[in-house]
């Protein structure tokens, strides 16, 4: 059986992330799923954005396209449509995915592009010093909300679900076994899949909000976790402050390329000389 290290540029370690940062846990989960599925590296293309978690491509030995802040999903859309046989994996933080790139996320979900978005949500912009993002919880302290954050945060999974995502799941860094299972579920899903991975940022968010060390933050995530099945039986008040984990949405809807391919098949003209452009 393949080892997760086979999919990594292991000699690039130690990585850039701070001690205790949860991003490495997600990175290992991603590589472990590739190994578990025994994917051919040439069949995978990872697209990453900007931010702490945008650096995952530095450590993976697969096809990689590292793009601008927030634009990983549209770049991945181009790849997924130009080569539908590829497993397109998009790694983003909360900034990339639902703040600067929020518009791209909802449209990508709506179109049901066949790709897998893996989002590491640490509630803040860790790479640049802990400023608030679109997922920073109300009342939190960050370097740009020193008096407490007054905005309401996005629930990434609910946003994706409302936009039409066909596979939506969430795991925490406390539970890497579940994280692997959900990432694999996303890759195997045909259509737009999104896995939100809750990760701790002990350096900035944790310190500003006095949440202790990395392990304390992970324990707190676990204490707040509630399985998706159970969450269905709970009221909005009961779910306040909880982290719903597991598969939240899993449904079939034809993906963009499959639909478009039917247009191609119906409209295609044979080019002279009998050759058909196969691209």
């Amino acid at each position: 059986m393949a080892d997760y290290k086979d999919y990594m540029l292991f000699d690039k370690l130690p990585h850039t992330w701070c001690a205790g940062c949860g991003d490495g846990i997600v990175l290992q989960s991603i590589a472990a799923v590739f190994a578990e599925m025994e994917l051919d590296k040439h069949d995978i293309c990872l697209v990453s954005g900007i931010g702490c978690f945008g650096r995952v491509d530095d450590y993976l030995d697969i096809n990689c396209m590292h793009v601008t802040h927030g634009r990983a999903l549209p770049a991945a859309t181009g790849i997924a449509l130009a080569n539908p046989a590829l497993h397109v994996i998009v790694t983003m933080g909360d900034g990339d995915s639902v703040t600067i790139g929020g518009n791209h996320l909802i449209h990508c979900a709506r179109r049901n592009i066949d790709l897998t978005a893996i989002i590491a949500n640490n509630y803040n912009y860790g790479q640049t010093g802990g400023q608030y993002s679109g997922t920073t919880p109300t009342d939190s302290i960050t370097s740009t909300s020193p008096y407490g954050h007054i905005e309401q945060e996005f629930d990434i999974c609910r946003l994706a679900e409302a936009a039409g995502a066909t596979y939506v799941a969430r795991a925490t860094a406390f539970n890497p076994v579940q994280m692997r299972k959900l990432i694999r579920g996303g890759i195997e899903h045909k259509g737009f899949s999104l896995i939100e991975c809750m990760v701790q940022c002990p350096t900035h968010y944790g310190r500003y909000n006095r949440q202790g060390e990395a392990a304390d933050m992970m324990k707190m995530m676990n204490a707040r976790s509630i399985p998706a099945e159970k969450a269905k039986t709970m009221s909005a008040e009961e779910l306040e402050g909880r982290i719903v984990t597991g598969v939240i949405v899993n449904k079939n809807r034809e993906d963009y390329y499959t639909k478009y391919k039917r247009i191609i098949d119906a409209q295609r003209i044979r080019e002279e000389g009998g050759s058909v452009n196969e691209n």
Partner: peptide, 22 residues
């Protein structure tokens, strides 16, 4: 589509340019 190609209308010009490069 008549030539086996793909047209996609993106949400803005930022994403259009990104999709092009992908």
């Amino acid at each position: 589509p008549r030539y086996g190609g793909i047209y996609i209308q993106m949400e803005d010009e930022i994403s259009s340019m990104a999709a092009l490069l992908g």
